[in-house]
Design a protein around this nucleic acid. Structure first.
Lengths: 265, 265
DNA sequence: AGAAGGACCAGTGGTCCGTA
DNA sequence: AGAAGGACCAGTGGTCCGTA
């Protein structure tokens, strides 16, 4: 494949101990949602399983519950460290490794490939057990990833950037060009992420506005839910193009059909 | 099609006022789970929306909240009546109409066809609105059916008999033969329902034990979730047949491979 | 300020069990 | 007893917002 093995490089001090890929997808209702102090340590502990569902915050906790270590510097590199928040992403060119306390976009896309592998394992286990078999990256898969030591994978992050990964899958050339352009302009990750929507809407247009079909037709993308916002954008643009077409009766195009332009034949 | 229009016949006094098929699948979060006294009246009222999620029963309610009508006899036939529980099913032959306060199996299967039609409508609306489009009969579809006046359709009932409908779809000859045999023997619906599992397990065997693939390959069946119990039975029988095959090394058959027989070559 | 992710919430799949 | 279905519950999809 075209992907580099970057996570060891860009994750010194953040990667967890590997080599604990058990095959317990879930088994009993242990529900691995429990956490320790601030960020959980790398071990497969699960501690207390705080039953605090449906509370309205206002947590009057006494700082740390147990394990009263007090160090929280961002450096170091020994085992048994406190779990840290992942380094933020920056816009990198294809092949470029992020320097400093940052992660690059190749690494971001690599996380999606890892999720796919976790899904494949969950599917194998489910089939073997005769249980119902997920076709998408579900909560169960995120739970399995976490149990397998991939603490750097979490649902909000993966859902946040799905459409960026979609563009990478569907039109790698366009994706690469966008990355280079936004890096050169010194844009932050947020605006790069926003910019990924438009080319996807154009792709959907070329496929009769069926963004679900576009996702499902791609083997690596079909395992991801279509993000709500992308779905809404496609719907809005479809309506726009339908209105525009009605206004001039004639042909419909996909490029630049965003209500602007294309009114004087 | 081979299906008769029975619901008007077998449902005098139970069918609701039709002619209110609106196209509001759900729209706002009104959540049509509210109910009035015992069985809701036919009107599209939704009243108060009792917020009693996650309570442990011990309801100390003061009988009726509002609308203090007090009649609850089971007879009569005018409009504005109390909603009644559906008549129980009895085992009927194909084409046979149940007499008395009973419903036949053609009617049962007809309910599955109606659900399919409700799903198709929900799908049309979802696509038109650019919302995510269900591929299965979900809670949303049951809610839509209820709002459309089909109060006789509910989730527990439909899920309960899915595998019976599956046999009807996949091998109508075998399904019909089973119905005739169980009617002749005077068996009740429960034992007929139980007996529907075995032929389905045999079909799964002939398809490499992939019951999901069997369901998905059939256009009318693919919209129904595979029932847990059927899935488990297929898994168990697969394990049995694998064990039997391992014991004698040689060929595997689908007929009568249930651990019994087939040990002396 | 820009960003990562714990934790929440409405609505789901699944079916038990109080009801008739 | 046999059966219909209201109502519950654990875990889902989705993402907000307190955190750093």
């Amino acid at each position: 494949g075209t992907h580099l093995a970057l996570d060891a490089i860009s994750h010194e001090g953040l990667s967890e101990d590997p080599a604990q890929h058990q095959d317990q997808t879930d088994a009993a209702g242990v529900n691995g949602g429990g956490r320790g102090g601030y960020w959980e340590a790398g071990q497969s502990t699960m501690k207390k399983q705080q039953q605090r569902r449906r509370k309205k915050a206002i947590v009057t906790s006494t700082e740390t519950d147990d394990d009263g270590d007090d160090d929280d510097n961002g450096g170091g590199g020994a085992l048994g460290m406190e779990r840290q928040r992942e380094h933020p992403f920056i816009v990198t060119e294809p092949g470029e490794v992020a320097r400093g306390k940052k992660n690059g976009l190749d690494y971001l896309f690599h996380l999606y490939e890892q999720c796919r592998e976790f899904l494949l394992q969950v599917q194998t286990i489910a089939k073997d057990r005769g249980e119902k078999c997920p076709t998408k990256v579900t909560n169960q898969v995120f739970r399995y990833a976490k149990k397998s030591g991939a603490n750097y994978i979490n649902k909000p992050k993966m859902r946040h950037y799905v459409h960026c990964y979609a563009l990478h899958c569907l039109d790698e050339e366009a994706s690469n060009a966008l990355r280079r352009a936004f890096k050169e302009r010194g844009e932050n990750v947020g605006s790069w992420r926003q910019a990924c929507y438009k080319p996807l809407v154009d792709i959907a247009c070329r496929h009769g506005w069926d963004i679900d079909a576009v996702f499902n037709a791609h083997p690596r993308l079909s395992i991801w839910y279509v993000p709500t916002k992308l779905r809404q954008l496609c719907h809005m643009e479809r309506n726009n193009s339908v209105a525009a077409a009605a206004a001039l009766v004639g042909g419909i195009s996909c490029e630049g059909s965003s209500a602007s332009g294309r009114f004087g034949v």
